[in-house]
């Protein structure tokens, strides 16, 4: 079981309010990702759930019991830290066994669980090494191993992949997703990388300045961002946000259109513009186009290879059904 409810949680550090007031429900077995720019309070939120910080006000309820005053060790949660936080003076075996040792489990049971975790995580050959002798990915797996042996009611991940190189990150992302499918335990995952959020989450919580901007499944957030912040944050490359007379034509203060929802043509279209920089990825081509009458250049995604040279005149047509409209407060208009 791992149902976590945050009820009017507030957090202040001295005079600085990090989280004004926040409600959130996390269902048992869900993979929830907290995402937002750095300093948005997502790590603080995770540490509040872990019990590493006190809430200033409000309640944290874990599995129906008020855990607000419960010390971290007795909340039944396990955490994987950004720096892995392995114990450098202990072997991998001892690292993984440490929570069991603290729980005063019988040595035979400790051994069984450690070996089982090592098997799952492909660490069996490394059990007698020290963390210092392992690669980044292996350390990450040891940290996960240390978390799973406790059989916690929920896992907390604090930007666990940010210290890995790009290739490894993709691999570990898959491994963590697979782990979640197998264990079916609640996981709360903090990241600033919206790609990680989109690929792994059942439910994404977008945070900004301690305030939840939107909660929803990845595709909900992609299809119906509640405001301009979420619209700009979710999706890569970023959604084009257009203000001014062009937006007014659609009865909105701001309109948004994703790069993949604009058609580009050399002959005709709604907006006329000139090609700036183009980025060729092979699978796609991104064009930065300066359109007449628009302040900012637009990003356009064209599938496959498109050869359009710098300075060429082109025409862009947004697909109306994919256009997002926002009012003066930045909120979505339906």
């Amino acid at each position: 079981m791992g149902r976590i409810v945050l009820d009017q949680v507030k957090k202040r550090f001295g005079d600085v309010t990090v989280i004004p007031e926040l409600d959130l429900e996390i269902e048992d077995g869900e993979f929830v990702v907290f995402v937002g720019p750095s300093g948005c309070g997502k790590s603080t939120l995770l540490r509040l759930i872990a019990g590493l910080e006190d809430v200033t006000d409000g309640k944290i309820v874990i599995d129906g019991t008020d855990a607000t005053e419960v010390p971290p060790a007795r909340r039944g949660l396990a955490m994987v830290f950004q720096s892995y936080a392995l114990y450098p003076h202990m072997s991998v075996r001892k690292n993984i066994a440490f929570p069991l040792r603290m729980a005063r489990l019988a040595p035979a049971e400790q051994k069984r669980r450690v070996e089982q975790a090592a098997e799952v995580l492909n660490l069996t050959d490394y059990l007698d090494r020290r963390p210092g002798q392992l690669s980044g990915g292996q350390r990450q797996r040891v940290a996960i191993g240390r978390a799973i042996v406790r059989e916690p009611s929920a896992f907390l991940f604090d930007e666990p992949l940010s210290n890995l190189d790009a290739a490894l990150r993709v691999g570990m992302r898959l491994e963590i997703s697979e782990l979640h499918k197998r264990l079916k335990t609640t996981m709360i995952y903090v990241t600033h990388d919206q790609v990680e959020a989109m690929t792994m989450a059942d439910k994404i919580v977008v945070l900004q300045a301690g305030v939840i901007e939107q909660v929803g499944s990845p595709l909900e957030l992609y299809r119906r961002p509640r405001n301009t912040f979420v619209a700009g944050f979710i999706g890569s490359p970023k959604m084009n946000l257009i203000c001014g007379p062009e937006a007014a034509k659609h009865d909105a203060t701001t309109i948004g259109i994703r790069p993949e929802h604009i058609d580009i043509s050399e002959t005709d279209g709604a907006w006329k513009g000139t090609i700036g920089v183009s980025e060729h990825l092979g699978s796609d081509t991104f064009f930065h186009v300066q359109c007449d009458g628009l302040a900012e250049p637009l990003t356009v995604r064209a599938p496959g290879e498109r050869a359009l040279s710098y300075g060429a005149d082109v025409h862009l047509t947004p697909r109306r059904e994919h256009m997002h409209r926002f009012d003066a407060q930045g909120l979505r208009i339906d």
Binding site: P72, A73, F98, R146
Partner: peptide, 8 residues
């Protein structure tokens, strides 16, 4: 903190 989470 990890140790604290681990029940130490």
């Amino acid at each position: 903190e990890a140790a604290r989470m681990d029940g130490a």
